[in-house]
Amino acid sequence: MILEQSTQLVPPAKPGSTHVEKEVLAEIEKVCDGFIVIGGLLRKWISYTAFEDCRCFTQRSIIDEKPFQCLIERKDIKEGDSFSIKKADIACEVSSEEANFGECSKSSGVLAYSFKEKDVIHICVEDQREEYKNQSH
């Protein structure tokens, strides 16, 4: 699944100062005939050098969360089957960049007002049904 998000940087950031750490949280919301509904959250911690009140630079951090949903389709899945999340992570960071540049005051120079990202989220489930656990695949 590809997840695109944009976070406002308030106060704005000094370009090149932004650092991001991410975590993927996911859970199975429903198992239906033919598919599994997954609900999740991409949580990120953004730290950067901010231009406070158009006067001075300070260190800031923001926690941002982006919800997502996805489906896993397979013909042999039946409602009531038991599955668990085996893996939930970021498979690939497609892009990650400061954006929406402007000036707060003439003395500040250029500042970044948002941070844009595009990530590929990877979710794997494990079949908990007893007949599948006892077979080797």
Rank of each mutant, 00 (worst) to 15 (best):
L3Q: 11
Q5E: 07
Q5S: 12
V10A: 14
P11V: 02
P12D: 05
P12H: 03
P12C: 07
A13G: 11
A13I: 05
P15H: 06
P15Q: 12
G16P: 13
S17V: 00
S17Y: 03
E21D: 04
K22E: 05
E23D: 09
E23C: 08
V24K: 07
L25I: 13
A26N: 10
E27V: 14
I28W: 01
I28L: 04
V31F: 13
C32F: 08
G34K: 01
I36W: 01
V37W: 05
V37I: 12
G39Q: 13
G39E: 14
L41A: 04
L41W: 00
L42R: 00
L42F: 00
R43G: 03
R43E: 13
R43Q: 11
K44W: 00
W45C: 03
I46K: 05
S47A: 06
Y48D: 08
A50N: 03
A50E: 06
E52S: 06
C54S: 10
R55N: 04
F57R: 13
Q59W: 09
Q59R: 14
R60I: 00
S61R: 11
I63R: 14
E65K: 15
E65C: 14
P67N: 14
F68D: 06
Q69A: 09
I72P: 08
I72C: 06
E73Y: 15
R74A: 15
K75R: 14
D76T: 10
E79N: 08
I85N: 07
K86P: 00
K87R: 11
D89H: 10
D89Y: 09
I90H: 06
V94S: 04
S95K: 15
S95G: 10
S96K: 14
S96I: 08
E97I: 02
A99W: 08
F101T: 09
F101Q: 11
G102Q: 04
E103S: 09
E103V: 06
C104T: 00
S105M: 10
S105Q: 06
S105G: 13
K106F: 00
K106V: 02
S107N: 04
S108K: 10
S108T: 01
S108N: 08
G109L: 03
G109F: 03
V110E: 07
L111A: 01
S114C: 11
F115V: 01
K118A: 12
D119E: 14
H122E: 01
I123S: 07
D127W: 12
Q128R: 12
E131F: 10
E131W: 07
Y132P: 00
K133P: 03
K133G: 01
Q135H: 02
Q135V: 15
S136Q: 14
H137A: 15
